[in-house]
Design a protein around this nucleic acid. Sequence first.
DNA 1: ACAGCTATCTATAATCA
DNA 2: TTGATTATAGATAGCTG
Lengths: 169, 169
Amino acid sequence: MGRVKLQLRKIENKTNRHITFAKRKGGLVKKAHELSTLCDVEIAVIIFSPAGKLILFDAKKRPEEILKSYLNLPEKQRGRYGISFQMFNLEDKLRNLLELQEIENEILLCNFESENIERQIRYYSFKSVDAQKVKVIVMLEKKRNRSIYFFHSPFKNSFQLLPPINYRP
Amino acid sequence: MGRVKLQLRKIENKTNRHITFAKRKGGLVKKAHELSTLCDVEIAVIIFSPAGKLILFDAKKRPEEILKSYLNLPEKQRGRYGISFQMFNLEDKLRNLLELQEIENEILLCNFESENIERQIRYYSFKSVDAQKVKVIVMLEKKRNRSIYFFHSPFKNSFQLLPPINYRP
DNA sequence: ACAGCTATCTATAATCA
DNA sequence: TTGATTATAGATAGCTG
């Protein structure tokens, strides 16, 4: 689509590639959301960059809504099935990404100051968060057997809990 | 798109919903494949129906190519990172879907006759497979620490290793 | 259920602000 | 960059067999 028919191969110009990525990512997510709503199915779109960074998206709900509901819902009110698998992905990815070697010990640490961390999570819900905070959030949620959703730009080095700009549910 | 602007809510007419699902699923997968190629990122699109059935798709490669490469590649030639997580999803889903209660025992059984099963896998690579065969394939691949990709119609009760009809890489 | 067929709606490449 | 705009290419809802 657009002025010219684009050849289906890697865009070599870095700037153009990133612009196209940003545009089409939004479009893909929108499409996923529409299909999800229209046909009543849950959809996840997962994008990995060559560097192993990731974007996670559940097309059925807005990311911040998922985050909120998981932070606020009573334990086990939501079945693990269907959502929890993404936790494993994310945790598995982040284990490499953040070089977590002693995650179990750190989970204990997180538990110790979980109240404070919960405040952090809420604070950062709509702001860019760095890898350390993502690590903390993930570990906390893992301990609680809950899921969490992140966006991560494959071309930058920051995590976001924001929906993509084009996303209008 | 189309003759009329569709309202963004669940299509109540079952037939129309399924038709729309089939059409838009193909479109979504095509979009994912294009983004994947143009911007050199790996993408997975995962669709769950309310019944917990699933479609798995890696937009970077054709499903049968992934299957073949995983069946033919030497152990650990491909890093677990990036692909293997989907194994966990699928296995986790199938554990419920197929009511696997004694999966470990069955893995041993699979191992015992793995040669024969490998032939089955190749045979069914381009054919619809039933749940029992999916179970066998998954367990075999799990034992080998490999991934595998399936399509599953959420509205039917069959697994497929075929790409969707609209998918033209 | 599927397979074409348009009339339309939507996404987006190039361009410009 | 970073956002809007616009001209096209692409997707698809409703039809028809």
